[in-house]
Design a binder for these strands. Structure first.
Lengths: 350, 350
DNA sequence: ATGAAAGCGCTAACAT
DNA sequence: ATGTTAGCGCTTTCAT
């Protein structure tokens, strides 16, 4: 029982290397390596002796040193720009796909919130061919990444890409969301768009436009702003939308985060949701249920996206022949989740 | 525009190494390294020339190779047993602390859900001294990890540990949760505990016991089971609790995941929540608002835990002198969040 | 100002 | 069966 615990030099043990083990066991480094990797050609007695020393010293091979030399690391990399509700759900799905298997997961996130186009190119080349056996790109800012190992993307730039992609039926989901508002009687519907470089953002906008069109509602460019998918970037456009002289009675935000920000902005402006303003989001991240009122949104199975992406990646890693096949482009269904942030407009029955 | 995109050899570009740059620029590897790391002693003309080649070739230094040689990597490691709602919130907080700074984040998760005691010892030694400048341990299974670089822990084994720890006021939170049930009129209250090796689990059980005691309710060992904090491990104990001849009218689950599992089990057994059974959780992960009915729970600021842990870790990395100070043990307040899974017991007013 | 060379911890040929 | 050796891509002395 330590009286006054301290992080002092006694705790700063030097790392035990393969050389330490070799020396102590009286064998060569190569032999230790063989034991560690259960290679053939080690005498049972030597094997046991080395194993004992390994246990004794508490040796663990350095993944980094090993990955520098050998091909397979049994590590899957996931590259995210930031850890926020959407990517966190992807990660949960990815972790789920790995459970029980013999792959480990390394998530790499830049500290800059991915505000730099091409960040993943940088990270991919910094990590791959080395640490990981394959990489999952989440909402990448580039459509192509050249790499000497398998890559798949979740919520890609384009589903025409050269590697497998995993997305939801964004167009259909956006149609459904907008129709929901129209059916409630809204005619003046704002759209707070996402990152235009992502296919998902483009398709959601198209769904919005087409739903208006089929309902005979004229498109008004004033009502369409880009919110960038993040709370910080959505704040300005949301305010702009709600400050309009002829304010929309409803806003379809291209993801939950910007929908949540829209609700916050509405509140700041003294607008009540859904009485004065209906808000609908997209994603159905868990956070969307925590708002007041709870957010109506379009559910996409984000975890399933991450799950399938990892499954496919592992298949690609283990069966190189598959890499010659045309890449699959998975598109998953969405579902309207009606909660309490949408209602009929106050003044109208339209 | 590719007609039928394929992942073929043309895409499998070899990694550009420092040697490629050196060769192309007609300088030595050492010089390129100096340019990359902005070291002194490079002629302006050489500097520019090399920089041009770097841009041209799209060279990025390998983090792995670099970390093998040099001390500082500007990467923070977070070790989690699995990516589930709790750890995901910690990660969001950690990412938040890194935003705008010049550290990057690597999350390492074993594929085995951390079902192996001491897994983090393994991962710490596999990664550290190399890839990362410091490590955040999340819900570790060991109290001490010896390492030649700073370590901090979130939701530790013990807040007596030799490194800084970050936890919530688990005892107080559990008191509050149990009192809430008692105030509603419950007398027969089950407790679905967590991983006993974690201090949080032990404190929550103590809070439960003490709240019963102060209310003059006799402790019944039959009503206390260990649920292991995960849905899979909680299922059995939850069923056992609800199948009791003298079934509890309320259950306090030691975290939200086991509370959610308890609600699910109740439903399977035909029990309505909260009419036939009240359920209260602990954590307030976003998922807790998604249940039917929404879960009453004790909120802990999980993201803040992750945030502060990273902040402290960075301070420890950048100011080695701090490592000689006694480690801080942060304890954050909790808050009861009453939603709809708790109510007065049906038959009694107690 | 620049290059040659050693070496970080490890694996994989190649010897023996 | 085991050891020797050559790197993996990089940083860092130490020469020049």
């Amino acid at each position: 029982m330590l009286d006054e615990p301290r992080f002092d030099d006694a705790d700063l043990h030097e790392r035990v290397t393969i050389g330490d083990v070799a020396e102590r066991a009286g064998v060569s480094i190569a032999t230790v390596s063989r034991v560690v990797n259960s290679r053939y050609g080690v005498a049972p007695a030597t094997f046991e002796k080395v194993k004992a020393v390994i246990d004794d010293l508490g040796y663990e091979s350095s993944l980094i040193a090993r990955s520098l030399r050998s091909q397979r690391t049994h590590v899957i990399g996931v590259l995210v720009a930031d850890i926020e509700p959407f990517s966190a759900e992807v990660l949960k799905g990815a972790a789920n796909a790995l459970r029980g298997g013999d792959y480990e997961l390394v998530v790499y996130s830049g500290g800059h919130g991915g505000d730099h186009v091409g960040w993943e190119r940088r990270y991919v080349s910094r990590l791959s061919g080395t640490l990981t056996d394959g990489t999952v790109l989440v909402t990448p800012t580039v459509a192509e990444v050249s790499l000497n190992q398998p890559v798949v993307a979740v919520d890609p730039q384009s589903s025409e890409s050269a590697f497998p992609t995993f997305a939801s039926q964004n167009y259909e989901g956006a149609l459904t969301a907008t129709r929901h508002l129209i059916e409630l009687g809204h005619r003046r519907i704002g759209f707070l768009g996402g990152r235009r470089d992502l296919e998902s953002a483009r398709l959601r906008e198209q769904g919005y436009r087409d739903a208006l069109h089929e309902a005979g509602i004229e498109f008004d460019a004033e009502l369409v702003l880009e919110g960038g998918f993040k709370e910080a970037t959505a704040a300005g456009p949301a305010r702009q939308l709600l400050a309009l002289a002829d304010r929309p009675s409803a806003v379809f935000a291209a993801n939950d985060l910007s929908a949540i920000q829209t609700m916050r902005t509405a509140q700041e402006l003294g607008l009540r949701v859904p009485d004065d303003l209906s808000v609908i989001g997209f994603d159905n991240v868990p956070e969307s249920a925590l708002t007041h009122p709870p957010l109506t949104t379009v559910d996409q199975s984000i975890q399933a996206l991450g799950f399938e992406a990892v499954r496919t990646l592992i298949a690609l890693i283990e069966q190189p022949a598959l890499r010659r096949e045309p890449p699959s482009h998975v598109s998953m269904p969405t579902k309207l989740v009606v909660r309490q942030s949408t209602a009929a407009p106050r003044a109208a029955t339209a």
